[in-house]
Write a protein that binds this DNA or RNA. Structure first.
Ligand SMILES: [Mn+2]
Ligand SMILES: [Mn+2]
Ligand SMILES: [Zn+2]
Ligand SMILES: [Zn+2]
Lengths: 145, 145
DNA sequence: GAAATAAATGATAATGATTATCATTTAAAT
DNA sequence: ATTTAAATGATAATCATTATCATTTATTTC
């Protein structure tokens, strides 16, 4: 993965460029997302921060996650059941593999994804802006049970 | 597309096999989904039925769509913003192309999709059950404006 | 460093699509 | 025609997210 400190610096730079204030609460959200491996949700970010930041409000986590998303610094993975997970390391579209049982979300390598977007554009006439590719199944841990 | 009448018959058969009653309301929902081209949502199904079935309840549409989904006869496309669209013709996973502006949803052909699932399974060790592939962009109609 | 100000926060209410509830109706079996 | 479990219609409950608003604070300016 990318170096968390590099990620943090680049996000802070983006925040300053867009003249947003750097509050302790905001920085805490940025740090957690930059260090995250498992695509956390808002509630998990909130719980992590609350332990050493007891006054933190859930609304503030929502607001900052929304802001980072609008700045293009994190990728939001919204699911039909209403749950949202966030990738603070790869803000661009990329495939995911999701365990139906334990809700683990991982980033696989997928070579054959290359020219799919242009193939779609050629066939449909759409100007493709983004895409979403999820595979759902059972991880090895959950199968060994 | 598949012949709507074939689709209707096959869904009715599935309903009888699973000993579900065939009410006029249920049949109306089935017919609309079997004839649908544009991946309608619950509200659109409801509106279509209400015109010649004024007592129809929105809850009944939700219940029947849920039932057809659980029987594997329709595909639900849930989106992060909470909206759901339904494909009554191709109940199995397949890619979609969605216009960000007019919300059109179409079924493209995509040859290069073939062995992606097995590639993912080999790399991650997951047992893949299903997948979801969406492309987002602007359709030609919306670009010519 | 103090003052000024626009932005951010915390607490909580509002939202809105979906789901649950329950009394009434009805499809289908006998 | 009778019976009964399932389905319906109307409406309340749910719950993650968003909006509101009074208070606090990061940053700029002097
Ligand atoms: Mn990811
Ligand atoms: Mn489709
Ligand atoms: Zn698992
Ligand atoms: Zn369009």
């Amino acid at each position: 993965m990318a170096d968390p400190n590099q990620r943090i610096d680049s996000i802070i730079k983006k925040l300053k460029e867009s003249s947003h204030k750097l509050t302790p609460q905001r920085l805490a959200v940025v740090k957690i997302l930059a260090h995250s491996q498992g695509h956390p949700n808002v509630e998990q970010i909130y719980e992590q921060i609350k332990s050493d930041f007891p006054t933190m409000s859930l609304a503030t986590v929502y607001r900052n996650v929304m802001l980072l998303k609008s700045l293009g610094e994190i990728l939001e993975l919204g699911f039909p059941d209403g749950s949202n997970r966030y990738d603070g390391n790869k803000p661009y579209p990329h495939p995911h593999v999701i365990c139906i049982k334990c809700k683990k979300v991982i980033d696989p390598d997928l070579d054959s994804l290359k020219d799919m977007t242009s193939e779609i554009a050629a066939e449909t006439g759409f100007k493709i802006v983004t895409h979403r590719l999820d595979f759902f199944g059972f991880c090895q841990d959950c199968m060994n049970q």
